[in-house]
Amino acid sequence: MVYLQVLLNGVLLGGFYLLMAQGLNLIFGVMGIVNLAHGAFIVLGGLGVYSLDQRGINPFLGLVIVMVAAAIVGAIVQWLVIERIKATGKQGELLSLMATFGLSYIAINIGQKEWGSDFKTIPYLQSAVHVGSLRFSVSLLVGVGLAAVMTAAIFGWLGHTRQGKSLVATSQNPLGAGTCGINPLRARLIGFSVGAALAAAAGMLLVLTQPIAPQLSTNYTIIAFVVIALGGIGNYAGAALGAVLVGAVQTLSGYQFGSVIQEAAPYLMLILIMLFRPNGLFARQGR
């Protein structure tokens, strides 16, 4: 029974990781921007919810506020920085990687200036739901729910709305999309905004689940990369399975072999994926 509990803990943790990865999957997987500032968006979103909570604003209302704020900041970043990178193809991706690397440092330092380096968390949803002898963390259950809703929403938006299809078309062939009447600048602004808002949403859950600080931003970027690399870049269903796999491997290895292995597990998985399944465990064909 204890192993079942460990496994379920891993599934819930996976839902949380999925929420972290969804924004990156959109920005990196669909738009082709290697966003190393993703973790910073997550942490600053969480710290924003923390500050609002300190002013008496419920974290769920805070979630809405920071998502809107992150979307605006994301649009500004896209317009001021990413959009200015004129190179295309691999050179463009490399330049976007370097630009977002710099942005992540700026964001981390802004975070430390504003919130300090101390760890912060909110004492909210700390309890668990009991089903027989099994227990489910309420905060992680909320995370799984949010991740499921957002995955479905993004999936539906990209595949079934004009705006989403415009974004995919722009990413695949900007020139062709332009000749079809799509405004590529607008599509990319919306795409980066949505990705940043999703990151902030993950941050809200993060600050409810564990203590966070700006200097941890890079860790969350890596976790998000591992999840989407496992699932197949740009593959939303694959990312969901990848997230659950990372979560389950972490909790099971942590229980069986200790937390050193638990913390190393995502990185070991990334190496193995790159070696043996470079397109991801659940990769779509043809991208």
Binding site: F28, G29, G32, V34, L36, K90, E93, L94, L97, I222, F225, A229, I233, G234, L270, M274, P278, N279, R287
Partner: peptide, 10 residues
């Protein structure tokens, strides 16, 4: 996205 860029990012 090519494998090399996942490597680059990480």
């Amino acid at each position: 996205m090519s494998k090399s860029f996942v490597f680059s990012a990480v």
